[in-house]
Structure formats: C-alpha cells, structure tokens
C-alpha cells in the first residue's frame, strides 16, 4: 500500500534520500566532475621515497592536516541534513566526534584506485608504502583494505550518501542526551538506504555487507586512536604545537 512502516511513507523516504544525497554531493571534497577529469596519476618512485624519508612527526602532521580538512567537509555534510541540526548541540558534537572520521573512511572509496591500490593524497595517487614514515603499517594496510572492499560494492553516490548518514546517526554512541531522537533518524536513514537499494535493484546481500562495514569502521577508528596515543607518548609537543586544533579537539 505504499507504506514501509506506519510512520514512514515511500515519498518520505525518497525525500530523505534526496536531501541526504544533495548534502553529500554539495560537501564532497572532490566533485564527481573533478574526479572524472582528474588525471589519476600515481606518485613517482622518488616522490614515494620523499614521503618515506620524512621524519615521522612531519608525516603525522601532514596526515593530521589532510584528515582535518576532510572532516570539515563531513561537518558541513551533517549540517545540511535537517534532522541533524534538529538534534541538541550536545548530540551533534557527540555524533561528529565519534563518526566524522568513519565518514572520511567511507568517502575515501571515491578517490581510491582499486587496481593500483592507491588513494588520492596531496595531489597524486599514493600506495600504502608512501605512508611508511608514520610507523603504523598495519593500520594503513587495514585502511586500504577497507577502501578496496567498499569499492567492490560499486555504490552509487546516493547509496554512499545514505550509508554515510546511517553511520553518522549511530544511536549507540556514548554520552548522547536524546538517544531516541538519534535512533529515529538512524532508522529512517536505514529505511531510506534499503528503499534506494531495492529501487536500484541491488541484491539483498549489499545491505548486510554494509552493516558489516560498521564494525570495520569502528575498529579502524579505535586503532587510529591507539596509534595517536602511542605517537603522543613520544612526541607530545609536536601534537600540542603543530597539529590542527580541530584534530586535537576530536581525537585528543
């Protein structure tokens, strides 16, 4: 009868999908047209070596700057979703503090070259070896594996947008004050994602695969925090004086 649940109609799901998709497209760091025109050029060997020979703290700082830039776009994405700005300020902060890096990892598949196992970084496409100086090869390998597995799903921009919003509206984050409202938004986003996947005639397994990605994202973010703690123990002054303030606020 056109209803997916007593409270959400197909029209509402289409509208939510449209809003979230529009927010996503307006706030992607690299527009689709840019990606199509981009010369997907890999780093030259001497450029890889140049990144590898950077002092550990300099490479950490460079990556912190890049992550922070990407996060600012995610904040803008969240702000353009009506339901997000309807939440109390505490919960907006909680959701972004916990979920913004996860969305950055999701968005990474847009600028990932599966065939070469490279990602757009600092103007060119870089493989995991370019990040050697960070001293966290295991985390880098996992991040690349995650991007590759996301690419294998061949999601459309709309599906990617809805999955990003679904992750952002995680109702199980600690310190939420209006958990029920977040839960409601997450359920609606989930229904919209399900609806769009059905509309796009994707096989049933895609939604299950995406649900599995949620725990993979959490694991990546936890490991980022662990690596940052280990780095902080050795270079506390570098973080204090050279890392972007927003990065310190989110992960400090």
């Amino acid at each position: 009868n056109g209803e997916t649940s007593p409270t959400v109609s197909m029209a509402e799901l289409d509208h939510l999908a449209h809003i979230i998709s529009k927010s996503h497209l307006e706030t992607c760091q690299h527009l689709r047209e840019e990606l199509q025109q981009m010369n997907w050029q890999n780093l030259l060997q001497d450029e890889v070596e140049s990144y590898q020979s950077k002092p550990r703290e300099v490479m950490w700082q460079l990556c912190a700057v890049k992550i922070t830039e990407a996060i600012q776009y995610v904040v803008e994405f969240a702000k353009r979703i009506d339901g997000f700005m309807d939440l109390c300020q505490n919960d907006q902060i909680v959701l972004l503090k916990a979920g913004s890096l996860e969305v950055v990892f999701i968005r990474m598949c847009r600028v990932f070259d599966s065939q070469n196992n490279t990602v757009y970084f600092d103007g060119k496409f870089a493989g995991p070896d370019a990040f050697k100086a960070l001293g966290c090869d295991d985390l880098i390998t996992s991040v690349f594996d995650f991007a590759k597995s996301m690419c294998l799903l061949h999601l459309t921009e709309e599906e990617l947008a809805l999955f990003s919003a679904f992750v952002l509206f995680s109702a199980d984050r600690s310190w939420l004050q209006e958990k029920l409202q977040v839960e409601k938004m997450q359920q609606r986003t989930h229904l919209a994602l399900q609806h769009i996947l059905q509309k796009n005639q994707r096989e049933d397994g895609v939604l299950n695969k995406l649900r599995c990605k949620v725990s993979a994202l959490r694991s990546l973010c936890n490991r980022h925090t662990e690596k940052l703690s280990a780095f902080r123990a050795i270079y506390p002054d570098v973080i204090r004086t050279h890392f972007p303030p927003l990065y310190k606020e989110l992960f400090g």
């Binding site: 907006q92 902060i93 927003l246």
Partner: peptide, 17 residues
Amino acid sequence: LKEKHKILHQLLQNSTS
C-alpha cells in the same frame, strides 16, 4: 562537551557555506 569542543561547536554554529 560544548566547552571542550569550541571549534566544532563554532563550525556547527556557522551558517552553511
């Protein structure tokens, strides 16, 4: 939480660009 996340709070307050 707002006090500890002044930059994030500020970004959320700014009108969408």
